[in-house]
Design a protein around this nucleic acid. Sequence first.
DNA 1: GTTAGCACTCAGGGAGAATGAGTGCTAACA
DNA 2: TGTTAGCACTCATTCTCCCTGAGTGCTAAC
Lengths: 352, 352
Amino acid sequence: MELSERKKAILQAIIEDYIQTAEPVGSRNIAKNHDLGLSAATIRNEMADLEEMGYLDKPHTSAGRIPSEMGYRFYVDSLMHRYSLTMEEISSLQSSMDRKYSQLENVVSEISDIISKATNYPAIVELPTAQKSRLRSVKMMLIEEGSVLIVVVTDAGVVRNRQMKVSADIDYEIIDSISEFLSGQLTGLSADDFTPARLMLIYEAMSQYGDFLKTVVEFVLECLGNTQSRVYIGGASNILNNPEFENIERAREFFSFIDRKENVSNMLNLLETAEENISIKIGSENNAPEMRDTSLVVASYNVGGKLHGKIGIIGPKRMNYARVISSLELINANLTEILGRMIYGKDDTDGN
Amino acid sequence: MELSERKKAILQAIIEDYIQTAEPVGSRNIAKNHDLGLSAATIRNEMADLEEMGYLDKPHTSAGRIPSEMGYRFYVDSLMHRYSLTMEEISSLQSSMDRKYSQLENVVSEISDIISKATNYPAIVELPTAQKSRLRSVKMMLIEEGSVLIVVVTDAGVVRNRQMKVSADIDYEIIDSISEFLSGQLTGLSADDFTPARLMLIYEAMSQYGDFLKTVVEFVLECLGNTQSRVYIGGASNILNNPEFENIERAREFFSFIDRKENVSNMLNLLETAEENISIKIGSENNAPEMRDTSLVVASYNVGGKLHGKIGIIGPKRMNYARVISSLELINANLTEILGRMIYGKDDTDGN
DNA sequence: GTTAGCACTCAGGGAGAATGAGTGCTAACA
DNA sequence: TGTTAGCACTCATTCTCCCTGAGTGCTAAC
C-alpha cells in the first residue's frame, strides 16, 4: 500500500527529529516545529496509521513514536535528501588525506582514523584483496648463506615475501637457475592452474631441490589465494557518544562483537558489492544479533579493476545517513586514488 | 619505616580480598576470613595505621579500605606470591599457539587474542622493531616494463618492498647493474652512515639515473630507520568485565585513549626495558591521566638479539597481578620462539 | 476530514526513611 | 602495654511514595 504524501512528510519529520534528539517524538512537537499545516491531533491520527503499517514503534504507551527498522529503510530508500558537505568539510577532509603514504597498513589505519573523525562513528576499512589473481612474478634471492628470500608479485599488485632456510651449499647460481626455472613455469598462472600433474612435472625437473620447491610453491599458492579480507577498525570509542550505548551491557555487546574482526569481515562479505555504490544495512538486516541496534554504511572501492575492498562505518540506527554517505563517498574517492598511486606507481593509470 | 609482619599480613589480606571482590574491605571480614588470630578491633587499629602510612585509602568514612597505589606497589614488590599456572592452563595456552603462522601481522593479532583470552584483559602486542639496524641486502627487479620492485632486507630480518615506476627504456640489464652497484655501495651501512658526501658520490657515479637512485635511497633509509613501534590491541572489550568500568564515562575515557595507538606506544616506550623481565606500572605511574585507574603489565621479548618488542595487558589496578605475570611469561617465551622461526628460518639459531 | 478537549498512562525524578556495613573511640581486660 | 568488646556515629545504597509532564486515544463538534 502506498503512503500518502502527507504520511511521508510526517514520517520524514519524525525520523529526522529522532535522528537529532534520540528522544521519542510526539505529535505536538511535529505540529510545532514542522510547517505541515496540521494540528497535533491530525498528526496523531496519521501516526497511529503509520504505526499500524509498521513504520513506527512505540517504546511505551505514553511516549512518542520512534522509527521502526522498516521506517528507516523507507526513509533511506525514498525520503532522504542528499547531504552536501560544506566547502570547509571538503577541504579539511581532503587536506587530511593529502600526504605521502608509504605502507599499505599505514594507509588503512589512517583512513580509518579519518573516517571516524569525519563521521564521529566507528570506522571500518578493509584491506584491498584480489579475487583470482595471477602470478606476475616470482623471484628468489640469496640473502646470506643458507637463507633465501622469495618475493611474489601478483597481477593485482600484491607483493609478499618470505625468508626461508636452505642448505648451505646452495649458492647464488643455483638460486638464480631455480628462480628462472620456476618463474618460467609459473608466471601467468592462477591458483586453479596449479594442478597436481603440473606440479609433479616441476618437482621432477628439479628433483634434487624437491623439498625446497615444494615450500616455495606452497607460498606462491598462499599469495594467489590471499583472498581473506582483513579489516581495521578505528575510533571504536565513538560509539559511546550515542545515548543508545550508555547502557553498559549494550556497549559490552558491541565491543565484544567488533573485537572479533572476523565478525566484521563476515558482515562485509554479506553485502552485495554494488559497484562504486553505497550499501546500507539497518539493524537486523545485518544478520547479527549484536548489530540489531546498529546500522552499517559501506562504500566499495576498486583499484585498477583488480583490487577491491570496502570502507564504512557502524553507527546507531538513528544516524545521519545522508551526511555519512557524503563523507564516505568523498573519502572513498580519495582512497581509490591513493591506492592506485601506491600500488601501480606514481600516476593513476589503470595498471595492467 | 618498616612494616611489622602483622601489618604486612593484614595489608596482603586486604589487597587480595579487594582484588577478588572489588568491594572495600572491612575489618570484620578480614578477621573472619583470614586466620590472623586477631579481632576486628585490633585489625581496625592496624588499618588506621596503614592508612596513615599511605598504604590504604578510604572511599568514605563508613566504607571499608581499599589499597592505595602505594599499597599495590608494595604488594607487587614485596608481598605477592608467584602464581603457578595449572597443567591445563599451560597446555591449553601452548596448543593455542602451536600452529603455523605465515605473516607477521597475523602472529601479532593472534597473540593479542591469546593474551586477552588467557588473562581476560585487553592485550597489547608490539610489532618487533630494530634499533640501528644495518642494511643486509637491497635488490631490484623489473616486474614489467616501467615498473621496478625494490626489496630491502636489514640485518634485523626486516624485509620491506616497494614498487616504483621507472622510464620504459630501463631494461633488465640496466636494473641489474644499478642493483649490483647500489648493493655494493650500501650493504652493511646503518642510517647514520648515509652522509651527504657518500650519497653525492653515488649519485654522480650513475648520474643518468639520479632521480631514481634518490627515491631508492630514500626508501632504504626509511627501512633502516623503521624504529617506530606499532601496536595491536586485542580484546579491548574485556575491560568492561570489571566493575570499575561500569561507569560509562570511565569506559569512554579508556576506549578513547587506546583508540589512539600512539598513546599506547608512548606508554610502552616509557618503560625501562628490563631484559626478559616484567614491568608493572600502577595507575598514575603510567604518566597518563586516562590510565590513573589502570595498571600496565608488560613483558619484553627479544629475537636473536636484534629485534625486540613488548607484549602486555592493561587492566584495573585491582588485578590478579601474579596470574597475569605467569601467563605473560609463558606466552612471551612461545612468541619469541615463533618469531625466531619466522624471521630467521626454520630453527631457533640466533640468526646472524 | 480536521481539530479541540479531556481522561488516562507511564517513565523519570526527588524527598524521605530504612538498612546495614563500616568506622573511631573509650574503657576494660590480660 | 597490647588487645578486645561495646557503642555511637557516618554515610552510600535501596526502597517507597508521590509528583510532574509528555504523550496518547477517543469523542464530539466544526
